[in-house]
């Protein structure tokens, strides 16, 4: 079962998570331990990377229009900064006493804090990216809601012109997202729903065209044609709602899928 829900987050955090776990085990197994080496340089490298992340993070917060990102990201940055301070303190303490137990504990706490803070930050950023895809999905849903008021060929042409680019964008972004997910069931659900949307869209347009033609001829069958069109628009909407639901899943609760 994967721990991280996207391949990008996994590739960034998994190696360091393994290193930290290993250090914790080593620390527990060798409680007295050997003398710690001078960690000033590697700690300085972490501190520099943290300063850069905080700078980049603040710039992201300032330029973003996503209120949730603005709300959540500062706490993650503070967490990373606090963890870096713990590492600096540990390094200073180990310089004085390379066997210091409190320093070792600080070192582990700091490394864990960096891992957790970076993880929170990546999650904030990822959720914001997901919200962008969801906005695109909702735009398509808005267009689908308009399908039942289209009664002329001119309006249908405009409808297709409006819907096509949004649908292409949703298709590209959801496809990319599904490839990014580490959870196979989520990935397959996104692919299946997206395939349905892509299959249904030309059929919907065709049903709208048939409805308009029947309406023009003042035939009684227009009710049936409208029903068929509404059914197809409804099916597409259902698939898009399912895409939105799965896009927001980040947990691995298998019970949910039972």
């Amino acid at each position: 079962m994967p721990v991280f829900h996207t391949k990008t987050i996994e590739s960034i955090l998994e190696p360091v998570a393994q290193q930290v776990s290993r250090l914790v085990i080593l620390h527990e197994e060798a409680e007295d331990g050997n003398a710690m080496p001078d960690l000033e340089k590697p700690v300085l490298a972490v501190s520099r990377a943290v300063v850069n992340l905080v700078k980049v993070g603040r710039s992201t917060i300032e330029s973003s229009e996503d209120s949730l990102l603005k709300q959540d990201m500062p706490a993650a940055l503070l967490r990373v900064e606090a963890a870096a301070r713990l590492l600096e303190e540990a390094s200073s303490m180990l310089k004085v006493d390379p066997y210091s137990q409190p320093a070792r504990k600080k070192l582990i706490e700091g490394a864990r804090g960096i891992l957790q803070g970076t993880s929170s930050l990546l999650l904030c950023f990822d959720e914001s990216e997901v919200r962008k895809i969801i906005r695109e999905c909702k735009t398509v849903l808005d267009y689908l809601a308009v399908a039942e008021v289209i009664e002329t060929m001119e309006d249908l042409i405009q409808f297709v012109k409006d819907l096509s680019p949004c649908l292409t964008k949703v298709s590209r972004e959801v496809d990319h997202r599904s490839q990014e997910l580490t959870h196979q069931v989520h990935r397959e659900t996104l692919t299946r729903c997206l395939d349905s949307v892509k299959t249904l869209s030309p059929i919907l347009i065709c049903s709208m065209k048939i409805f308009i033609q029947i309406l023009r001829q003042h035939c009684r069958e227009s009710d049936e044609a409208a029903e068929n069109r509404n059914y197809l628009a409804g099916r597409m909407s259902d698939e898009l709602h399912e895409i939105i639901r799965v896009l927001q899943l980040t947990t691995y609760d298998e019970d949910e899928w039972d």
């Binding site: 990008t8 960034i12 955090l13 190696p15 360091v16 290193q19 930290v20 290993r22 250090l23 080593l26 620390h27 197994e29 060798a30 007295d32 331990g33 050997n34 003398a35 710690m36 080496p37 960690l39 590697p42 700690v43 490298a45 972490v46 520099r48 990377a49 943290v50 850069n52 992340l53 980049v56 993070g57 992201t60 990373v80 590492l87 070192l107 490394a111 960096i114 891992l115 970076t118 930050l121 990546l122 950023f125």
Partner: peptide
């Protein structure tokens, strides 16, 4: 994205630090 690159740098630096700290302990275990 720049923020992903910044996170990668932190992860790499932390990994190197933890590895350096772990090496001394490993000798004892």
């Amino acid at each position: 994205e720049i923020i992903l690159e910044a996170c990668k740098s932190i992860a790499a630096a932390t990994g190197a630090l933890v590895k350096a700290a772990g090496t001394a302990q490993r000798e004892l275990v």
